[in-house]
């Protein structure tokens, strides 16, 4: 065996694996085992039901859109916080973490109060046909809210480490500001942006508390998959709930895998070593 400089590799790897198994894999395995009790015919019936499909579509479609929005908003906020010095910058920086800390139910109630037809924002938006609370758009708003700190916090260190002389080099070579951003800055940010995107996506898929308050939870329209699971639990249909949970798990896994592959491609320049 090769000699290692840092001691304790065996111990720490064993600990990490045991912990991962106990905390992550064991509950997931129990979920899959529980779901396996359901027969194939019944499973197909459950998953192909229009209401289930609509809920899954809203959960994953909404989460993807929300993560994309978070990517854009998070990049902008991170950029402003790192690049510019202005009064109140530290306060703004601290505010970014609020969606992390706030109980999600509180966030949901606050957003609902804002966007409800008689709320501060809703009262102006509703007459223009923009219905947000008690509609699919509300689901999106809640998902964007809870996911956006992930993008800001993953991007900030990379934004800080950007060297100004690379941008200056691009400028003296004749690149416009837009070209400098697209050709020099964006490619370096992309892998990290994808990490933030994946985190926001995972958070949005799993989000429950804030969404159910603002969504209105109309079946086939603004009902998310986790709510469906809770409803099945309330009807003591544990197998059905487990089956639906396993299905969500599989789709999430595939999505995150796709993001990881995309990420590897986006940082191919960093993989090679002389």
């Amino acid at each position: 065996m090769r000699r290692r400089i840092l001691p304790g590799f065996g111990l720490s790897l064993g600990y990490a694996l045991a912990y991962l198994g106990l905390v992550v894999l064991l509950p997931l395995a129990a979920l899959a085992w529980k779901a396996s009790a359901i027969g194939p015919g019944q499973l197909l019936h459950l998953l192909a039901a229009p209401r289930t499909l609509a809920a899954l579509k809203l959960s994953f479609g909404g989460a993807l859109l929300a993560a994309l929005a978070d990517g854009a908003i998070g990049l902008l906020v991170g950029w402003v916080l790192v690049r510019y010095r202005f009064p109140g910058r530290r306060l703004l920086d601290a505010l970014v973490d609020l969606p992390f800390a706030l109980p999600t139910a509180v966030a949901g109630i606050a957003l609902t109060a804002l966007y409800a037809p008689n709320g501060w924002l809703g009262r102006w938006l509703e007459p223009h046909g923009l219905k947000i609370a008690y509609a699919p758009a509300g689901v999106l708003v809640a998902m964007v809210f809870v996911g956006f700190p992930f993008v800001v916090r993953t991007l900030q260190p990379v934004l800080e480490s950007l060297e100004s002389d690379v941008e200056e080099a691009a400028t003296t070579l004749g690149a416009t500001r837009a070209q400098t951003f697209l050709r020099v800055i964006a490619p370096v940010l992309l892998p990290t942006l994808l990490t933030g995107f994946a985190l926001a996506l995972a958070r949005a898929v799993g989000e429950y508390g804030s969404v159910i308050f603002i969504a209105g939870n109309l079946p086939m329209k603004s009902e998310i998959a986790p709510l469906l699971i809770v409803q099945q639990l309330e009807e003591f249909d544990y197998t059905g709930a487990a089956a639906l949970g396993t299905a969500m798990l599989l789709v999430s896994l595939l999505l995150l895998l796709a993001v990881t592959l995309l990420q590897r491609w986006s940082r191919r320049w960093a993989e090679v070593r002389a």
């Binding site: 060297e163 002389d165 690379v166 080099a169 050709r183 490619p187 320049w269 960093a270």
Partner: peptide, 14 residues
């Protein structure tokens, strides 16, 4: 103007 920097300032992703 052609400018060469002390720390090269190459585009590392290219």
């Amino acid at each position: 103007v052609g400018l060469v920097f002390q720390h090269y300032a190459l585009f590392r992703h290219l």
